[in-house]
Design a protein around this nucleic acid. Sequence first.
DNA 1: GCTCGTATGTTGGTATACCATCGGACAGAA
DNA 2: TTCTGTCCGATGGTATACCAACATACGAGC
Lengths: 230, 230
Amino acid sequence: MVKNADPLAALRIETPPATLREMALERMRNAIIRGLFEPGSRLIERTLCEQLGVSRSVIREVIRHLEAEGLVEMLAKQGPIVARLEWDDARQIYEIRAALEATAVADCARVADEKVKAELRKSLSELDRTSQQNSPLGILDATTSFYRTIFHAGGHTIAWDIVSRLNSRISRLRVMTLSTPNRTTSGPNQIREIFARIEKNEPEAAAAACRAHVKAAAEIAESIIGADGT
Amino acid sequence: MVKNADPLAALRIETPPATLREMALERMRNAIIRGLFEPGSRLIERTLCEQLGVSRSVIREVIRHLEAEGLVEMLAKQGPIVARLEWDDARQIYEIRAALEATAVADCARVADEKVKAELRKSLSELDRTSQQNSPLGILDATTSFYRTIFHAGGHTIAWDIVSRLNSRISRLRVMTLSTPNRTTSGPNQIREIFARIEKNEPEAAAAACRAHVKAAAEIAESIIGADGT
DNA sequence: GCTCGTATGTTGGTATACCATCGGACAGAA
DNA sequence: TTCTGTCCGATGGTATACCAACATACGAGC
């Protein structure tokens, strides 16, 4: 009975996470988030089969998953389309984000040790790099990594799942928001402010900075979406 | 071009929402929420096929959906099982609920008109009836309907989706919580308190009452789960 | 010319077939 | 008795086949 002795744990052969379905899910989700498909455009199952090189069973199961995530809508008698985003939905999403992120940031500021702060600094430098390159997608990734650290530091794994999912629904909006001229500098500055408060372990101030950040993003988003109606 | 003239809207033939998949999804979700399957128990696809009278394709797509909802977990090389619930997850869920429900309740208290209040009263009387019958499932339904009204009144449809989904993940816990001896009376009393504040349009007080309600539920849940480790 | 009916192709819904892998039972050897 | 090798049933992963419903195009009839 030498089972699961800790020193032997390293021997474990990790199961390849490679079912076709999981790979296809990853690809599809990314494709939608990255904006490869227009919102409202139809997702023809057989076409996707060819594009991804898998069978319809796989595609259909992936679509079910994305449907539950809110990235795909089903039109009765017509099939799946890339989910459209009403401004009212986006507004709600920003509100929920503000609530959850502020809580997470505050908790993070309470417990953050040097290790967490170091990780956050790393994300920040990545943020600097990508924002100098004016790369919205890069900024998005860096911001995501910043917040992921914050949520996990405070033990808010479920809230992080929710926020991630909400973010993927407004990803297009976020990219447009980030492409706004002065946003390229103001966004990172606000995030730096959040970090500064976390660094000093000031929960309330950090949460306030976080709310301000989300609010600013929401306002830019509204001006964009109000203008073009997408 | 007489399309969509309002008076004619009633003529529209509603699409029967009846694809096998949707029906199966509903049944399966309910079965899990109602506790017909033990958490951790395996969901054998072919068995479910027979039980529901549909093919594996349908079952598998439903499982994909439930997986994304967090009601089902996939074990590599073993297949789907009913999701288990760690106390830490439940704790997080109660936290998130407290945040979202308090916000919704406050907003509802701001905008609630007589119509909303009447609806809430209806749910309350249903709550009375079911709690006198000592019917946990009935109490759950009435509570759900109470909160649904609140969330929709304040326009928080997305938050409602999230809360519903979270609640389904802790449904077993909720039922156990409601079965706690004094909970049968204390729960409804707290909800009545929330309503009283909404009725008087006192947002802050309503939110506070709501937080107290969720907190109490969480504490009972912790005592239960701490005791039996389920 | 306009309208309606019909044919056809596209598409999603559903069922089934095939395969690799895993787990346990069983048997044989040390 | 215990360990080990093998077999077989169970199970999920994947692919394919079939069907009904819808959309479009086209043609007949007014």
